[in-house]
């Protein structure tokens, strides 16, 4: 089965000014995002992650490289009909109600009239927006805007959902609600690609992460793997063999210490991020 998103040797240059100076936003990026997982795309501002998403969605053309979504070339109607997208800081027509917006997006996404009511109500329900669905969007709070944005992104039951900073400016309660929606999508077998600066949340909800810096990929892998520090160990003494335990206890007791567990210690995703991004920049 093909990947949810396959990016091969993607490069994107922007021309600046009339002299045509090039700014390389994405530099030879290759990514394989597997299906059915929550994938975090991380990086500091200007690292190229939003540009990458725009290229994936066909909103910006690539300078070089190949991209496919669910086995189809990106930017085709077939690929986009199976993709949902919530942009960063979404803005919607204020005069529409939440239900009207989701209906509008459902029709643009190809939902049939016979399925429209069910699709709209399901999306509103998953986004916990049913109660406020008939209010004009102009009266919504920031968190409600994000949730109605989430509803419009999933109303056509896409296989792939791309969320760009879904919790930016949202309070912890709203942020937790969005986290639950992401989990719900994963439980339904969907692939979710998440761009975020909230590293704690990414660590909680993502199965895999990729970290970008200056347009390049600096790390990619399962969250468990990239956070584990294999050069150190935490020992759980009860699981050791008697001989080893005795030897360890004896050695430690000589220093007045007591062993309680042996396991792989973890560092936080935030520490890893800072080490990779800020460290390289300082150098």
């Amino acid at each position: 089965m093909s990947s949810a998103i396959s990016v091969r040797r993607l490069t994107k240059d922007f021309q600046i000014g009339i002299r045509g100076l090039k700014l390389r936003a994405v530099d030879n990026l290759s990514l394989e995002i597997p299906r059915g997982q929550v994938y975090g795309l991380l990086g500091p501002n200007g690292c190229g992650k939003s540009t990458t998403l725009k290229v994936v969605l066909g909103l910006v053309t690539a300078t070089a490289g190949e991209i496919s979504i669910l086995g189809h070339p990106s930017a085709t109607a077939e690929a986009r009909s199976r993709t949902g997208f919530l942009p960063e800081a979404p803005y919607f027509h204020k005069f529409l109600s939440g239900r009207e917006l989701v209906t509008y997006c459902a029709r643009l996404s190809g939902v049939l009239p016979s399925d429209l009511t069910t699709a709209v109500e399901d999306a509103l329900g998953l986004a916990a927006m049913t109660d406020a669905a008939d209010r004009p969007i102009g009266t919504y709070s920031k968190g409600m805007l994000q949730r109605i944005g989430f509803a419009q992104a999933i109303v056509h039951d896409p296989e792939l959902v791309i969320l760009d900073e879904p919790t930016a400016g949202v309070d912890p309660v709203g942020s937790a609600a969005i986290g639950r929606m992401i989990h719900a999508m994963r439980d339904k077998g969907k692939t979710v690609v998440l761009c975020s600066h909230l590293l704690g949340q990414v660590e909680q909800v993502c199965d895999r992460v990729a970290i970008m810096d200056r347009g390049k990929l600096v790390l990619e892998g399962r969250v468990e793997d990239v956070l584990a520090r294999r050069d150190r160990h935490v020992m759980t003494i009860e699981a050791m063999t008697p001989a080893a335990r005795e030897a360890a206890e004896a050695a430690l007791a000589a220093h007045g210490a007591q062993v309680t567990s042996v396991t792989h210690p973890r560092r936080s995703l935030e520490d890893l991020f800072r080490e990779l991004v800020t460290g390289s920049r300082d150098a």
């Binding site: 969605l57 077939e78 800081a89 997006c105 944005g149």
Partner: peptide, 12 residues
Amino acid sequence: NKTALTLLAKPL
């Protein structure tokens, strides 16, 4: 307002 981003990411 970037509503075009939301719309053009759909099969439109």
